[in-house]
Design a binder for these strands. Sequence first.
DNA 1: TATTGTTATACTCTATAACTATA
DNA 2: TATAGTTATAGAGTATAACAATA
Lengths: 155, 155
Amino acid sequence: MPSQQRPARIGFLLSQLGTHAAEVFAEQIQPLGITLSEAGVIRILGRAPGMTQRELATVLGATQSRVVALIDGLERKRLAARTRSTSDRRVQQLELTDQGRDLLPRLRAAAEAQEQAVTKGLSRQQRADLHELLELVAAGQQLDLDVHLGYRRRS
Amino acid sequence: MPSQQRPARIGFLLSQLGTHAAEVFAEQIQPLGITLSEAGVIRILGRAPGMTQRELATVLGATQSRVVALIDGLERKRLAARTRSTSDRRVQQLELTDQGRDLLPRLRAAAEAQEQAVTKGLSRQQRADLHELLELVAAGQQLDLDVHLGYRRRS
DNA sequence: TATTGTTATACTCTATAACTATA
DNA sequence: TATAGTTATAGAGTATAACAATA
């Protein structure tokens, strides 16, 4: 029997299960040779090719210098590429390479595997209920579900 | 309309809402002058005074050197104290100071405020359902609900 | 020899600010 | 002047490994 005196709160459970879910996903993508942050960028660029670095920074909630480092890494891995915009030569437009695009289905498969692992032991109905309630919580928090915030967690 | 093509999965929602919940809690404790990690340590020491550094490392899933830094910080803030064990002088036993113990009710209040903020917009019944489902997920993942894992999230 | 804690060191993620090239 | 991106630098948090004191 642990020393827990009262039942864990929803906020605490969310925080802990969220960390756990991210760890499970990180394990799934580990064979792909990319980090969680990189996976997030690849997913975003897969959906919105041609995005500028500043736009990506806004979507991620990250600084521009962080985006520079992130794209540097993806370029080194030949997964993304920068192109100077012809209309405004200050701007870098971002694209996935063919190799980067090849990762998209593998990221979806990893997400599916994570989903199975995390909801292990829940019935189909329980999964549906949980999904609905989490969407409801997200709606109440005005969160943009299109963005992965995991890496922004602070100490 | 965002570019989301399919509904967010439970794993993704958990990860994102978990980060958000942690951020909300971090805001709540910010006036207390402690970090999330420190709040976790204070909570643990409040429940299990006399714990050794190695035990704390195990509970946190952190390294011993991380615990050294963590306790150094709490000692500097006069919130925790080390005492050499008389039976085994290699061991440091950890205690909260009076000042550290004074934080316990304030941490509980912060957790309560977080809970209200995160579950805003849910009915009493929906909160109960969500709580039950999250406990079920946690049980399936063999997580120790006594420990805050947030700071272990990797990139 | 083994264990507890500590220190030294390094790597990643993050942020701020100074800098460049363009506009 | 203002903006997009870059570089330099610094501060957390994390990990590993070498070390000191004690068992």
